[in-house]
Design a protein around this nucleic acid. Sequence first.
DNA 1: GTGCGGTTTTAACACGCGTTAATTCGAAGC
DNA 2: GCTTCGAATTAACGCGTGTTAAAACCGCAC
Lengths: 253, 253
Amino acid sequence: MHTKLFLKGRLRHELGTQEKQWLEDCISRIVTIQPRETLVRRGQRVEYSYYIIEGVVLRHLDDRGGERQLVGLNIPGDFVDLHGFPMKRLDHSTTALGDVKLAEVPHSAIAGLVEKSGHLARALWFSTLLDAAMHREWIFRLGRLNAEGRIAHLICEIIERYRFVDLYDGHTLPLQLLQRDYAEACGITSVHANRSFRTLKERGVLELSGEGRIEVLDEAELKRLAEFRGDYLYGDGDLALESLEDRDEQASR
Amino acid sequence: MHTKLFLKGRLRHELGTQEKQWLEDCISRIVTIQPRETLVRRGQRVEYSYYIIEGVVLRHLDDRGGERQLVGLNIPGDFVDLHGFPMKRLDHSTTALGDVKLAEVPHSAIAGLVEKSGHLARALWFSTLLDAAMHREWIFRLGRLNAEGRIAHLICEIIERYRFVDLYDGHTLPLQLLQRDYAEACGITSVHANRSFRTLKERGVLELSGEGRIEVLDEAELKRLAEFRGDYLYGDGDLALESLEDRDEQASR
DNA sequence: GTGCGGTTTTAACACGCGTTAATTCGAAGC
DNA sequence: GCTTCGAATTAACGCGTGTTAAAACCGCAC
């Protein structure tokens, strides 16, 4: 079952067995792409969406000088461009980080799916809105945090998302981002990304081991530096929300 | 007809008469809110979504110190929080800019709507994805542009969006944002926003007249400073996309 | 009219980050 | 082994933006 990770761990949106099968049946073929290979380019019309079975895909916009700004990153269990189904074309480009294995799903099949099941339609819609929620937090990251906080925030997000799909062991984060990629995600130069990693190491919150692995030494401190609140990822365990809601209500009385 | 501006001017997604009526029938009541009044707070569960009939609503996240980061802004014709329908709670807060008149739409009614019409369901989905597309461009703005470019980019976006709903006369942009609001949208301080406005005035691209009105003197130069490409707004007239696509294809040959 | 509060504007100074460039490191190929 | 090439690392310097504070401005209440 290729799509077993879809919406895994997400609040009230895990799929039933029947629904998972329907989704699985929509796959037209399995595609593999090479490191740094482009999947879809900005402006392109699309008739398929891609679901990640293995690997990581970067989503980015390019400025006039050709410099990239990452606007998102997808991991196993994510659709990369399900929004292409209602939008019909992409406004940004997508590129493989390492080797990536994808399930290709034709939009015609998705159209059948949303007709067949209202609940599944809602779940697909929800999954595209998770991207939007993450985008908002990326805006916050760039607008309100300094370089060190931005990198910490990005790493916190990836830790949480890896947790949902059981790819994080609580210590080593397997993620092949180059320091240049962190820089392109955080709106800083790679030189400054390197400086920031140094201070993070000096604080004892993480270590960089080879192959792009990150050793997380002090997750609590990492979250503090990032002002990280993970509720925007809409995880299952996020009953913290209830109490947050209560607090707000009390504050407004 | 309160909802006559919904998706106006958007590529292949304008609604039919019947669909507009169905949408209109979903409105449970008309709500008005005061300047700077909060509509919904982060973490709150929601059972209604709000469509803007008149006025502007700011969407923002708050950092630990209580400083705000705007993550979006909605104008007449937009749903403020339609994503609350699949998400069930909001991950950010919404606040009125000036006086705002809203149509309240219960989620139960939206559920009926998406069952009744697949096309309308697709259009609603599309409209929430427009927000995501704008978020991505906001990330680009913060990550790749300097203060002056960020303000220029924000103004360019608002000009285009006002055009869709016929609120821009080609010269005067009626928008009551304070310089503090521009600062909170652009990830800069209000002091620096002021500096940036000065240089924009010195370049002769705009003037600030009272009441928060902006006189746009040189839109072409404004777009150049912003590196602005409006195709992410998925407007009707955006056949530029075709040629953009062609260019990409040629480049990859 | 006067006073008041919020916004805009300006100045002076400090610092985070960009820029440039040189050096080190490591993996891949010969 | 040596070479090569990209990435990581470090240093020196400059600029853009933050910080703080004061002054000017403006609408509004009285």
